[in-house]
Design a protein around this nucleic acid. Structure first.
Length: 557
RNA sequence: GCGCCCGUAGCUCAGUGGAUAGAGCGUUGGCCUGCGGAGCCAAAGGUCGUGGGUUCAAGUCCCUCCGGGCGCGCCA
């Protein structure tokens, strides 16, 4: 809140100083308004003068002084303004402005932090999209949280968001699932059948076969294999997707669209992509296969798009899928992919580039794997090996809040270690409890206050009493609360959801510190009213921050 | 070999080119006669992998090397 205003006003001051000749004219460089590491330097600092010195010439400290003179903010906004170090301008926010922020947050409520940067631009966030061949494992949990929180952030920035799950319900993987189910089914009905190569070993596969056997008996022994496999695939995929959907909903993730690859292929969209690529001369035949000239678009070699069997490779349907999204009117597509798909980025982008789609239309957010360990021993975690920890089990063990916070708090670029033995038992170590505890304390105070003060909102009629806020811990808490819009902006635009966790801890810390030193409910009605307003503002900010993370805000713990 | 990513406290990780690099866990020692001690305060713990470069300023940008992860399928 403070920061946007300061950025704007300092920019204006630079323009004025240039117009009056106080500093040399020229382009205004993109300067920062940041929180100094050492808070004795003030609430904020700008490097504008340092950058200006380089861009338009002059001595940094001299330019900083001129800038201060041109800025000359009213003393009830900025109480200290000084040149420091090599040419920083340090700013200390005056109490009246800090108190204004408390009132503003109380007035805006959950609207605090909402922005209009997105200007209604339509963004499709595609995430999870795990193959529907079995239950989600914990890796999908990381994907789900990154995608969901990013979507929340972009929504708060004013983008129009659609969440999408792409189901790879065509192709070899689901075929292998069908054959695995078939093998169990045949064995159950007395026809010894070897388990297929590439089959899925999990217990759920046996359950799927058992369900078919219970429902249909030996009916599928009497049809041809193709028909049987078609049916088994449909039944299995439907059941697996239903399971995935249910787990994700419990995890707090809802998709606007569940997009079927089979449907896409049936619609002829993939054929149209091939025809279009051929028309643009990016297709050739060799060795009985149809090739795409992906090497024209930064790939290290050309790729097969139609196999000798006449089947599509994933490449064709993927390209058609992204074109379909664009046709549905999205201005930007963001895909959340695990690191093992890093090699596909160039090919998907290449396919789109070949069809004239600008590269910035698709953004792929890569996150590193969740490394599973059990008492120090590494696990492979894959559905095809059957060695994985289900997201459902993690959720059941530690709860949705702890699991979501855990996945959200590490930068997507960093691999996460995940000790199964540790994770599968509820633990007080998760930092989410520190933050939630702050909220529960606030709720307790507000409960107590309504009992004592005979009701009345914490934020009513406090214009006068707010000037009773004078303590340095109050100032520090207000300063932290003021950062929410900036945090949302950075976390959303840089695609770094973990910033919310860093911020949530900072706010909670500032609150706990305030709480330890500043009694809220006192015999002094004005002081009590003022502090209650601050507490209410802190609650709003914590609720907003945890809300974006999809983590609950308990009234008590 | 080529491409992308990572290397920061004992462990797990934050860190927007900016001033004296921060948290959680763990360790050590304090703090409950008023709003919740799942908290607060303090101590100990760092050649920011290495060597160069750019810059007024580098954990942050560029290059070298070392170590680790992932990919380089007619799997998706």
């Amino acid at each position: 809140m403070f920061r946007e205003v300061l950025r704007r006003e300092i920019g204006d001051a630079i323009t004025r100083a240039m117009e009056s000749g106080a500093i040399p004219s020229g382009d205004v460089p993109p300067f920062d308004v940041e929180v100094p590491r050492d808070r004795r330097h003030g609430d904020y600092a700008t490097n504008a003068a340092l950058l200006l010195a380089k861009h338009v010439g002059g001595k940094p400290r001299e330019i900083a002084q001129r800038l201060i003179e041109a800025y000359a903010p009213p003393p009830d906004r900025i109480e200290r303004l000084e040149v420091a170090g090599p040419g920083f301008v340090n700013l200390t926010v005056a109490w009246p402005w800090k108190r204004d922020l408390v009132a503003t947050i109380c007035r805006l409520g959950d609207g605090y932090g909402l922005q209009t940067i997105g200007a209604g631009r339509r963004v499709n966030v595609e995430f999870v999209s795990a193959n529907p061949t079995g239950p989600l494992h914990v890796g999908a949990g990381r994907n789900a949280v990154i995608g969901d929180v990013l979507a929340n952030l972009l929504g708060a920035l004013g983008f129009s968001i659609s969440r999408e799950y792409y189901m790879n319900d065509a192709g070899q993987k689901v075929h292998n699932l069908a054959r695995s189910v078939e093998a169990h089914y045949l064995n159950m009905l007395g026809q010894p059948t070897p388990f297929p190569e590439g089959g899925y070993p999990g217990e759920y596969v046996k359950d799927l076969a058992g369900r078919i056997a219970t429902d249909d008996g030996d009916r599928w022994l009497r049809v041809c294999e193709d028909e049987r496999l078609d049916h088994f695939r449909d039944v299995s995929v439907t059941a697996v997707v239903a399971d995935i959907r249910e787990v994700l909903e419990r995890f707090g993730v809802r998709f606007d669209t569940w997009f079927s690859e089979r449907g896409l292929i049936r619609s002829g969209a993939v054929d149209r992509v091939l025809a279009e690529l051929r028309a643009r001369d990016y297709i050739y035949e060799a060795d009985g296969k149809t090739w795409f000239r992906s090497s024209c678009f930064g790939d290290d070699k050309d790729r097969v798009i139609v196999k000798p069997t006449g089947e599509w490779t994933y490449f064709g349907s993927d390209t058609a899928y992204h074109l379909d999204k664009l046709a549905r009117g999205f201005d930007l597509m963001i895909n959340v992919w695990a690191i093992d798909h890093i090699g596909d980025v160039a090919r998907v982008k290449g396919g789109l580039a070949a069809l004239g789609v600008p590269p910035e239309a698709l953004e792929i957010l890569i996150y590193q794997h969740v490394r599973l360990k059990n008492a120090g021993e590494s696990l492979r975690m894959s559905k095809s090996s059957g060695e994985f920890v289900a997201l459902r089990d993690l959720m059941d063990a530690v709860g949705v809040d702890a699991a979501r916070y855990f996945f959200a708090m590490t930068s997507p670029a960093v691999p996460m270690d995940f000790d199964v033995a540790l994770a599968l038992q509820p633990s007080q170590d998760n930092p989410v409890y520190y933050v939630q505890y702050a909220h529960a304390r606030i709720a307790g105070i507000l409960r107590e206050a309504t009992g004592k003060a005979g009701g009345g909102g914490a934020c009513s009629s406090l214009d006068r009493s707010l000037d009773r806020l004078t303590d340095e811990r109050e100032a520090a808490l207000i300063h932290a609360l003021g950062e929410l819009p900036e945090v949302i902006r950075l976390a959303g635009l840089r695609r770094e959801p973990h910033r919310l966790c860093v911020y949530a801890r900072e706010v909670a810390e500032a609150f706990h510190l305030f709480y330890a030193h500043c009694r809220v409910l006192t015999d002094d009605p004005d002081l009590t009213a003022a502090r209650l307003a601050l507490v209410e503002a802190a609650r709003i900010v914590l609720r907003r921050t945890l809300g974006l993370l999809g983590v609950s805000t308990p009234e008590s713990m």
